[in-house]
């Protein structure tokens, strides 16, 4: 086992993040990394993202790695800035976020590395995917109506 490689990868993310900060001025924006295998989770993340943006007073959101279908579905939302980054950068950002929560401006829509427990385990008749995405991932107070 050797942690040096992981730390090197995480270290690279600092450069990528600085690039994002410099190019998009993250003072009034947040970044959402679409990174879930479940299309429905990815859809709901964007469906509720505007509510999240309003609740935090962000001017706009940078959406990383949304697939073509999502981009099309949310094309009319002018507060979304869609960006694609390659696998290497995606992994680096995730590794850095695993190392420590280096920013309060990043949402990753899965629990792989962002948390030690997978909140999707709590799905039940009572707790839906909508609840998990809105309350847990985006930190909203309630599930927005769609």
């Amino acid at each position: 086992m050797n942690s040096n490689k992981d730390l090197e990868i995480a270290d690279k993310a600092r450069k990528y993040w600085r690039e994002l900060e410099n190019k998009y001025d993250l003072n009034n924006k947040a970044v959402i990394l679409i990174d879930n295998d479940d299309d429905n989770v990815n859809y709901l993340t964007l469906a509720y993202a505007d509510e999240f943006r309003i609740s935090k007073n962000y001017e706009s959101l940078i959406i990383l790695n949304a697939n073509a279908k999502l981009k099309e579905e949310f094309a009319n939302n002018k507060s979304f800035i869609f960006l694609d980054i390659d696998k290497e950068k995606t992994l680096a950002i995730k590794k850095l976020y695993m190392l420590y929560k280096f920013t309060d401006r990043l949402i990753i829509n899965n629990y792989d590395g962002t948390s030690d427990t997978d909140a999707f385990n709590l799905l039940s008749d009572n707790i839906t995917v909508n609840d998990i995405v809105a309350i847990s991932i985006l930190g909203l107070n309630k599930v927005p109506a769609l």
Binding site: Y111, T117, I127
Partner: peptide, 20 residues
């Protein structure tokens, strides 16, 4: 790791939500 929300803000947000 065996904990329900220790240093895991995303998971912790579900504490008490809908009677969890």
């Amino acid at each position: 790791v065996l904990n329900d929300g220790f240093n895991q803000i995303m998971v912790k947000r579900l504490r008490g939500y809908k009677n969890i």
